[in-house]
Amino acid sequence: MFKFDWKRLSMAAGLSLTLVAAGCGSSDEGSEDTSGDSSEGGESTEQMSYGEEMDYEITGIEAGAGVVAAAQTATEDYENLAGWEVSTSSSGAMATALGEAYENEEPIIVTGWTPHWKFAKYDLKYLEDPKEVFGGAEQIKTMVRTGLEEDKPNAYTLLDQFEWTAADMEEVMLNITDGAEPAEAAKTWIEENQDKVGEWTNGVEDVDGTEVELVYVNWDSEIASTNVVAEVMKQKGFDVTITPLDNGPMWESVSEGEVTGMVAAWLPATHGDLYEQHQDNLVDLGANLEGAKVGLVVPSYMEVDSIEDLKAAE
């Protein structure tokens, strides 16, 4: 997605779409008169205004999250989103709203990102973004403070070698969502993936209480990744502290050398501005996860496929 003091992201446009006969309780008879598929672009009396039902609101996460900023830009760049607003809250509040809407098969649009456990739990889809407001695929990268390689080479090596897949991350996230404590979910994943963990720790010597502090933004994805890395480092003898922060302070703390680093940098879009601001004062260790994505997400039962399918508030 993701989002690291810990790696988060409103709506006012009407959406009218023709529902199939089974979905709105009509029969096939007389469908020619109400289909809404005429060459003149007529609208069916059975069309539903999703936007009106949702009060023309996109459900967002934290106000400082890149995906929220992109959603706000979308309401400006897409004429058909005139009158829509992006509500901001938290990743947890967004997930709760999504779950409640999904259970009742109600319309909802959320600011979403991959990897995220919601894609494993619910049948969801990204809305197409013809204007590419949300950008393309993203990477989640590892950033550490300058001088770490010289001061704590074993910590540097382990962080440099850390990489996994979206499926790996989502497995940990879903375990946490189902009730496991983050540290316990991390330990479970580590026990079941010793081959992968062995690649991260290759050449890393055991240490005796070397202090390490990792920061992250309080996104489900970054809670998962940071806890996994922290548990692996603890098993090598490090004394690890993990600290949740807002996006800005997370980057600032690494660039100012106050903490060891983070595995929660979403680039090039989500944290692009923060990277530009701090890149000269930290060390970029490259991607630890490829194929991350952000955008507007809806349940698959909604009859809408593109942002351009939405309609402006009336």
Results as ranks from 00 to 15, higher is better:
2 F>A: 12
12 A>S: 15
13 A>R: 05
14 G>D: 09
18 T>E: 10
25 G>N: 03
25 G>F: 04
31 S>V: 00
41 G>D: 00
44 S>I: 06
46 E>F: 15
50 Y>S: 02
51 G>E: 04
51 G>L: 02
57 E>N: 15
62 E>M: 11
62 E>T: 13
72 Q>M: 11
76 E>L: 13
81 L>R: 05
84 W>S: 12
97 A>Q: 08
99 G>M: 04
101 A>Y: 00
101 A>I: 00
103 E>F: 09
115 P>N: 02
118 K>L: 11
119 F>A: 05
128 E>D: 11
131 K>E: 13
135 G>Q: 02
142 T>C: 07
143 M>N: 12
151 D>S: 14
151 D>L: 04
154 N>V: 05
157 T>V: 06
164 W>E: 01
180 A>H: 11
185 A>N: 07
185 A>Y: 11
188 T>A: 12
195 D>P: 04
195 D>A: 13
202 N>C: 04
203 G>R: 07
204 V>F: 01
206 D>I: 06
215 V>E: 00
215 V>D: 01
215 V>W: 07
218 N>Y: 02
231 E>V: 05
235 Q>L: 04
240 V>D: 03
243 T>K: 09
246 D>A: 12
252 E>H: 15
257 G>W: 08
266 W>L: 11
267 L>F: 06
269 A>C: 06
271 H>W: 00
272 G>E: 01
274 L>V: 03
277 Q>G: 02
290 E>T: 15
297 V>F: 13
298 V>K: 02
299 P>I: 07
304 V>D: 05
310 L>N: 00
310 L>M: 07
